[in-house]
Each structure stands twice: as structure tokens, then as C-alpha cells.
Write a protein that binds this DNA or RNA. Structure first.
Length: 178
DNA sequence: CATGGGATTGACT
DNA sequence: GTCAATCCCATGC
């Protein structure tokens, strides 16, 4: 999974008529307490322990939907959180859903921009409605995961170097090769 | 059945 | 920098 997370950088997420390039991810694994799968298999987390290539969408703080890609084999319980996208197609549609400001430089923002909803939890990332297809591999920097209260020191955040669409705070070195 | 927490965002001091 | 908003669900009585 720590290999899948950086591999996802540069991949393209498509939903409806909108699409974006992944520029930031974070890895989560059931062996560490920040991961929802840490508590074991429950109605909420069973998808995390399910087969790879599945979307895990959940609501955070009662307001935002966050998108994950389940990656390890069935029974393992791990996922990669998609934290930021660089808009590729359907920017007008994203704009109408997001209003002014950045479109997708944050995990809650990108789901709103693409129109991804909780009902799409457990759907396939191969057959849709949300689809992820391979893209070019991007150079990246690693950083500490942000926004969490448990195991926050793990360096499992991956950001594409030079992208201004990465969520803040930008990790040191992000703009080196821009 | 009641309660508390959460991988966030945006507005305000 | 600080703080509230708000829904799902895991946990505990």
C-alpha cells in the first residue's frame, strides 16, 4: 500500500463529466489507529477490508465526503485517501458546485467538485460511477499526515512535486522541481 | 437507546 | 489563530 499511494499520483479520477489528476494522497492501514479499519470489521469498515479497486466514501465532521481507494488484498483493511486533484475536465461544472475559490485542493473539496456522494461508497473504481485510470508516474515528496489526531507522525503523505493544487500546508520541498 | 468523536472547511477575532 | 457546523456510526449503558 505504501507503494500504491505514490503510484496513484498522476492517475486520473473521473466522475460524470468531470475529471482530475491526483496530486496528493495519504496512506492508511489497519495496523495503525488513525485508520478506520483499525477497529476491525464493522458495517462501516467492511469495504476497507474488501477487495482492492473499490471506493470508500465516508462523511467527516457531518459535512464533507472523503474519497479513498481500497488497495490491499481482501481481508487486509487498508486504503489510500485522495486528498487533492488538479482539475482536468468539467471545470465549469466543478465551479458551479464549489463556487469561488479553489476547486479541488482538499479532500472535502474534491468530492464536492466532482459531485461524489456517500451513496457511491463501496462502488467499483474500475467500472464506475467513479473511475480511476493509470496515468504517468509523477515525482513526489513525502510528508507527515495532516488533520488527524492519532498516529499523525507517520510520513505517509505523498504530494506531487510542483503542483499548486496540493492542500495546505505544503510539505517542505514541494516546489523544488517546479 | 444515548453519547461522543472524526482522514475538514470556512468564517470570524 | 480560534471556533462552530453537522451526520454517520462505533461504543457503552
Amino acid at each position: 500500500m505504501l507503494e500504491v499511494a505514490p503510484d496513484l499520483l498522476g492517475c486520473v479520477v473521473t466522475h460524470g463529466s468531470t475529471a482530475g489528476v491526483i496530486v496528493e494522497t495519504e496512506a492508511y492501514h489497519f495496523t495503525e489507529p488513525a485508520c478506520h479499519a483499525y477497529v476491525g470489521v464493522t458495517p462501516r469498515t467492511h469495504v476497507l477490508h474488501g477487495p482492492p479497486g473499490t471506493a470508500y466514501v465516508y462523511r467527516s465532521y457531518g459535512i464533507h465526503a472523503l474519497l479513498n481507494a481500497v488497495c490491499e488484498p481482501e481481508g487486509v483493511g487498508a486504503a489510500v485517501l485522495i486528498r487533492a486533484l488538479e482539475p482536468l475536465r468539467g471545470e465549469g461544472e466543478m465551479r458551479s458546485r464549489r463556487g469561488a475559490g479553489e476547486l479541488a485542493n482538499g479532500p472535502g473539496k474534491l468530492t464536492q467538485a466532482l459531485g461524489i456522494e456517500l451513496t457511491e461508497n463501496a462502488t467499483s473504481l474500475i467500472t464506475g460511477p467513479i473511475r480511476i485510470h493509470e496515468g504517468e508516474r509523477l515525482p513526489y515528496v513525502t510528508g507527515v499526515r495532516i488533520g488527524i489526531t492519532k498516529a499523525a507522525e507517520l510520513p505517509w503523505r505523498f504530494c506531487a512535486i510542483g503542483s499548486r493544487d496540493v492542500s495546505r500546508p505544503w510539505p517542505p520541498g514541494l516546489m523544488q522541481a517546479a
